[in-house]
């Protein structure tokens, strides 16, 4: 992986790395990607992907509104101003 690609990944995942981290990760990540590249050898082209390990019966929800009863604690983790959750500037 080149530095440019690495920096792009860090930027789109909103990770700000210091110089030490950057240098260390670059090397380590390269090694991990080499491990990942090994799967190219696997003979699996004809197989269906398995997104889950088991077949799961489909579950759909009916239309009964249900209010979450614990609003105070739900919003207790946020900063509130006139009922609104305060967020960073856009």
């Amino acid at each position: 992986m080149d530095q440019k690609e690495f920096d792009r990944l860090a930027s789109i995942s909103r990770l700000r790395l210091d110089e030490n981290e950057r240098e260390k990760f670059l090397k380590e990540i390269d090694e991990v990607i080499r491990l990942f590249d090994e799967i190219e050898k696997a003979d699996v082209d004809s197989l269906e992907p398995a997104f889950h390990p088991i077949d799961i019966p489909q579950r759909l929800r009916g239309e009964e509104p249900e209010a979450f009863g614990n609003k105070k604690e739900l919003l207790g983790n946020t900063k509130i101003y006139r009922f609104y959750v305060v967020g960073p500037k856009i």
Partner: peptide
């Protein structure tokens, strides 16, 4: 035009901010 949200059971149309919310 549903009564509840796509992935949870909160009502869709509500006036007061953050009153129809859940985890």
């Amino acid at each position: 035009p549903t009564k509840t949200k796509l992935f949870c059971s909160d009502a869709v149309a509500v006036e007061q901010p953050n009153s129809s919310v859940c985890p």
